[in-house]
Amino acid sequence: MITAERLTKRYGDKTAVDAIDFTVEPGTVTGFLGPNGAGKSTTMRMVMGLDRPSAGSVTVNGRAYRDLPAPLHEVGALLEAKAIHGGRTAYNHLLWMAKSNGIARRRVDEVIDLVGLTDVASKRSGGFSLGMGQRLGIAAALLGDPGVLLFDEPVNGLDPEGIRWIRTLIRSLAAEGRTVFVSSHLMSEMALTADHLLVVGKGRILADTDMNDFIARNSAGYVRVRSPQAGELAERMTGQGWRVERADDGAMAVYGATAEAIGDIAGAHGLYLHELGGVQASLEDAFMRLTEDSVEYHAGVPGAAHAPDSAADQTHLTPAGV
């Protein structure tokens, strides 16, 4: 459990983190989402006791990080790929960490195995690819079998296989009851991994919400319909009070209706349908709108329409490149 209260970090007259309050609960993946420079990394460094808050406080399991007697047993962190001396072998890097917190040597072998670095454990980490470096960082985070895990932009620069590996790992860590706090600037990534979402912009919390709620509220969904009798169908649908827009390719975008309702209407009037499916507006867009202008967010949530059916949902949520 991580608890921040009025947590603030100022650099000169620039406020990087502005009196934020949040709680990261065990057993869930909490996504920490915001554009670059929103204060995510600064916040995570303050959690780890690396940066000193200008005001407010943040605790891990009820204690300031500096007061943890053996921190690696309680908190594991992947703060950035390059927090490793490239001249040291992967094994020795984990070995000194283990020694500092009284962790058994066999646990070093265990985590090396776990992240799949067994073959290169005796190689200097300077020659590692980004993905291997990231795996070493994760091995370091898991070394003390901690109940709280922090991942700062864990998928940055990884190939699809590595991304999937980290995603699954993060999910399974939370499923084991651990507190998992993951930062990212990619909404699509968060949609796939996080249960709970903290959106930050300019050092402030813009949204602290359940992931599903966020998706439902922030996606202006519509149903895409194609029919050889488009004119008649459009009339029928408009008659139901739904908004119908003609798309460039001759299909129609229907707002305010579910795919089922449209299918029923068409069937009732004997109209053919060549295409029918829910389309989720990009969450990336919702996120951009949110962080672009934090004031407007609270005033009105755009497009609180019906969520389209879940199958179509999934296809459109999956980000490109996966």
Partner: peptide, 16 residues
Amino acid sequence: AEYSSGMIRTTLAASP
């Protein structure tokens, strides 16, 4: 070298 490699963060995470 702790600073040029960024490892100081790992060091201080292990021993604050």
